[in-house]
């Protein structure tokens, strides 16, 4: 197929065109050993010690944005969900829903991103599915991935183990992904535009796993941002979180856009960050281990677990304190 080609309904018809698309474009790029025979299902040997299983769907617009594309997200999203649940990611499935008319060049870039990200995460794509829908029935393409990982034996992650005095760590700057996508979607032309932080956190999780039960709980702050993750974690618990605004890591470009639009970066999605609740004695060690990794070089301690049931607060730069709540709905530009 040539560079100018587009996806047609024939590519989803199950005939020769379908097979050609899958063999020449998809399997050639992303196929590991198990996918080579184009199976509808993969037969795998389960690791001992339990499995972690997760799935996620990706519908981002635009498909490509500064710092990555939907292919990177589809791998990192599921790898990270498996990782923060205490798993070492092993295998992914890849489901593609393609809109009739999607430029083949776009699909190729997305698939290359999937392949590159999977390699970098040391996961194998072992099964997949491709459907084509008529023009107008999806927005370019949607991607679903499901992932299976081996449970890391040393971790016992449970929000109920979070204790007063624990430290809250985050592996890097907040909200870059959400702001990058918002700028790309709205066509803001900025000299110094935010870049998505899309990336894997499994190595950060593995590094934290060395500290065993001192690591109480982890999450990746995606939709709803850090605020949503912290609020959900302490909901119904006898403890809360107190954040220090002075310590929150924020990149210059994301901050600038957030200030301009009146968006709180605490509510904005990251796609390559992890938040960990750690016992105070291991927190500095976890930070040191994270900072030794490229994806964790911006890791910081952002606050403490306190005896305030279910509440997340922020000690502001001005010296005041406020409740950090979850946004009611979507993030909207404000008039005031």
């Amino acid at each position: 197929m040539s560079q100018d080609d587009r996806i047609t309904m024939a590519h989803g018809g199950g005939g020769r065109a379908s097979r050609q698309l899958i063999e020449e474009e998809i399997a050639r790029r992303v196929g590991g050993t198990a996918l080579r025979g184009l199976p509808d299902a993969a037969t795998l040997v389960a690791p001992s010690g339990g499995l972690v299983f997760s799935t996620d769907s990706f519908v981002v617009q635009p498909l490509e944005f500064p710092g990555g594309n939907i292919g990177h997200l589809a791998v990192h999203g599921t790898v990270n969900d498996v990782a923060v649940a205490g798993g070492r990611p092993l295998w992914l499935s890849l489901g593609l829903i393609l809109e009739e008319g999607l430029p083949l060049a776009v699909l190729r870039r997305v698939l290359d991103a999937v392949a590159g990200a999977a390699r970098a995460c040391d996961v194998e794509i072992v099964t997949g599915d491709t459907k084509v829908v008529p023009r107008g029935q999806c927005d370019g393409m949607y991607v679903n991935t499901a992932g299976v990982g081996a449970a890391l034996p040393t971790l016992a992650l449970d929000p109920r183990s979070v204790t007063v005095g624990d430290r809250v760590l985050v592996s890097g700057s907040l909200g870059d992904h959400g702001m990058a996508v918002m700028c790309a979607r709205e066509g803001f032309e900025l000299a110094n535009a935010p870049r998505s932080d899309t990336g894997p956190v499994h190595r950060l999780v593995a590094a934290a796993a060395a500290f065993g039960h001192g690591v109480r709980f982890m999450r990746d702050p995606t939709r709803g941002g850090l605020a949503a993750v912290l609020d959900e974690t302490v909901e119904g618990l006898a403890v809360g979180v107190r954040l220090e605004e002075a310590h929150l890591p924020r990149s210059g470009p994301a901050r600038a856009v957030a200030e301009l639009l009146g968006v709180d970066l605490l509510h904005v999605a990251c796609e390559g960050r992890v938040v960990a609740f750690c016992a105070p004695e291991v927190a500095p060690e976890v930070l040191r281990a994270w900072r030794a990794l490229p994806e964790g070089h911006g890791a910081v301690d952002i606050g403490a677990v306190v005896a305030e049931p279910g509440r997340v607060t922020l000690a502001t730069l001005a010296g005041g304190r406020r409740v950090v709540d979850v946004p009611v709905g979507e993030l909207l530009p404000r008039i005031c």
Binding site: G262, D264, T316, L317, G319, G320, R321, C336
Partner: peptide, 25 residues
Amino acid sequence: MAIARYGLKDLLPANVRLVSGPGCP
């Protein structure tokens, strides 16, 4: 918004209260 975002009510003396006016169109 600024008062809420920076927790400024905490910084006022106990006998001073801020009341939000009709200022959001």
